[in-house]
């Protein structure tokens, strides 16, 4: 069994389940938002603001935000361990992978804090 600390879930199953579950959340959120745009002809700021700042929608947005973070983490981690490896590019593979992982985890963390601040701040 292969273990990896930079991995998001505890093991293969949790990664796989999280990936599927977050996809569903993201899809539902996308449909919900798409529906809002389709059903309303002239969208004003007031309408937009009212729609998104309702409590249920704020919770839903938070869920979608968390889903994106988790989904992206797992996906990018998989990409990094496929292509940025010592097998593919020698010793610099490890360095590049670590840099890439630091980069995307920082970005995702910033998005998380920023997003939460927008939604609940």
């Amino acid at each position: 069994m292969v273990t990896q600390v930079t991995n998001f879930g505890r093991n293969g199953v949790s990664n796989w389940l999280i990936q599927r579950f977050t996809s569903v959340v993201m899809l539902a959120y996308f449909l919900c938002v798409a529906c809002f745009f389709v059903c309303n002809d002239n969208i004003s700021y007031e309408l937009f603001n009212a729609y998104f700042s309702s409590t249920p929608m704020t919770i839903f947005s938070t869920a979608a935000l968390l889903a994106i973070i988790a989904h992206a983490w797992i996906g990018l981690w998989a990409v990094s361990t496929d292509y940025l490896t010592t097998r593919m590019m020698g010793n610099k593979g490890t360095v590049l992978r670590l840099l890439f992982q630091t980069a995307y985890s920082s970005v995702l963390f910033i998005y998380l804090v920023w997003g939460l601040k927008i939604l609940w701040g």
Partner: peptide, 9 residues
């Protein structure tokens, strides 16, 4: 088999 590589790749 329950790790992120063995099966889930």
């Amino acid at each position: 088999l329950d790790d992120p590589f063995s099966v889930f790749r």
